[in-house]
Every structure is written in C-alpha cells, then in structure tokens.
C-alpha cells in the first residue's frame, strides 16, 4: 500500500520536500489567474454590485472550512483504525488551518452581509452552522493544547473529530429546521444553478487556488510537526543522558 511507504517520517519529509516547490508554483499561478479574473473579468452582479467580489474569497474559504474537517476526519480514522504515525500529525495541522479558513469565511460572510442584508450578522442557517463548526475547531485545538503527550492528545482528538463528523450533518439538519421554523427575513442566496459563467470561472479558479494553498500549508505544517516531535525525543534523550553525569554536563540545556 502506497500510504504505508510514507509511514516513515523521514521518507515523508523527503517526498514533501520534492512536491512542495511544484505546489507552491501552482498555488501562486492559480491565485494570480483567479484574482485577475475575479477583479477584471467578472462582471458586477446586477443585484450585489461589486460586493460579488467578496464571494470569490468567501465561497472558497467556506469550502475549505468543510474540506479541512473532512481531512481531519479521514486522518482520525487513520489514527484510530490503522494507527498510521502521520495521521495524527495531519489531523493536528489541519485543525489550525481549518479554523483560520472558517474564520475567514465568517468574517467575509458578515462583511458581505452588511451591505446586502443591512446587518453584520444574520442567524441564517448556513452562517450558524459555520459558527458551530468554528467552535468545534477551537475546541479541538484547545484539546490538543491541554494534553501534553502528543500521542494521547492525538487519540483523544481523533475520537472527538469523528463524533463531530457524525454530528455535523445532524447539526446542519437541525439548524435548517430551526431556521425554517423561525422564518427569517427572506435572504438572498448566491447558490443555485443560475450563476453566471463569467462568475463561475473565477470562482472555480479561486477555489482551486485556495485548495492548493491548503495543501501547501498543510504539508509544511506537517513537516514542522514531525520536526517538533523529533526535537522533543532528542531533548528527552539529552535529558536522560545528561542526568547521570549532571555535574559535568552543566552546559547542556537539559529541559
């Protein structure tokens, strides 16, 4: 199985080093094309005017917020079922990036809402679900931070991630129910098949660019995490070997 070849962190580091320059290149090019298209090619929307340009970052960010959680859920299965040594590294790194993109999507959503709805925040079904997702990301990160042993923290976070993944559709469903029950002011929605192709192309390019950006950041963060664990083990070794000869090894900053 190919994925097992990269169970060895050293081999993973080498592969990531080889892939990353290409990914960074693709990412820069995709962003250049996407931003050019979204500013110079896409027409103003007849209803939203220029604020439609916010959509070119809002929609990809919201899409990434979901994708990050899927990556975390898959990694959690990897941690719990196959005990893949890189799976919890992947889950931990995806959490921060996911929280960042969820934050972007919330902020851009409410900045879009001010001129469109006349208020920064509407308890709209989708905004509310994303807010709940954001809280879940932050809770997971808090769990990672409070547990000292990365292996134990990884397993605990994996359990919570999977329970959350089971719960997310239920939350989405119940928030939709709650929303229709309370009949909000009719809000304009951007989704639906009526989207103009001149807008769809930049949107897709931007979504692609954001996805590549995620993979670049994720791979880099995973490399860092592998290095961090290496440093941790080496420090522990240093401390263990320094202790018997503590008198002579005063220069060593044993942790």
């Amino acid at each position: 199985m190919a994925i097992w070849d990269y169970a060895n962190p050293t081999r993973f580091m080498r592969l990531a080093d080889r892939i990353l320059p290409w990914l960074i290149g693709i990412c820069v090019i995709a962003f250049a094309i996407g931003l050019y298209k979204s500013f110079f090619m896409a027409p103003e929307d007849y209803q939203q005017g220029d604020t439609v340009r916010i959509m070119f970052i809002h929609v990809p960010a919201a899409w990434l917020a979901m994708m990050c959680y899927s990556v975390m859920a898959l990694s959690s299965i990897g941690t719990l079922v196959w005990k893949h040594p890189l799976a919890d590294v992947s889950a931990k790194c995806a959490a921060l990036i996911g929280a960042a993109f969820t934050f972007i999507s919330l902020v851009t959503g409410s900045l879009w809402g001010k001129p469109m709805w006349g208020t920064y925040w509407v308890w709209d079904a989708r905004l509310t679900s994303v807010l709940v997702l954001f809280i879940m990301y932050l809770g997971l990160m808090a769990l990672w931070r409070t547990m000292e042993d990365p292996i134990k923290a990884g397993k605990a976070a994996a359990v919570l991630t999977l329970v959350g993944a089971l719960n997310l559709p239920i939350i989405k469903f119940s928030v939709d129910w709650w929303n229709t029950l309370h009949q909000p002011a009719s809000v304009m929605r951007l989704d639906g098949p009526t989207i103009h192709p001149d807008m769809l192309v930049p949107l897709l390019v931007m979504a692609f660019a954001f996805s590549v950006l995620f993979f670049v950041l994720h791979l880099r963060a995973m490399q860092n995490e592998v290095l961090r664990r290496r440093v941790r083990t080496m420090r522990q070794k240093a401390a263990a070997s320094a202790r018997p000869a503590a008198a002579t090894a005063t220069t060593q900053p044993a942790e």
């Binding site: 604020t51 916010i54 809002h58 851009t108 900045l111 001129p115």
Partner: peptide
C-alpha cells in the same frame, strides 16, 4: 462601487 470599504476590508483580512 459604493461598498468598496467592505470589499477592501475582506481582502485585507
């Protein structure tokens, strides 16, 4: 357009 501030704020953030 009239909402330039919001758009710039979005991209800036």
């Amino acid at each position: 357009g009239p909402h330039a501030g919001f758009i710039i704020a979005c991209y800036f953030i």
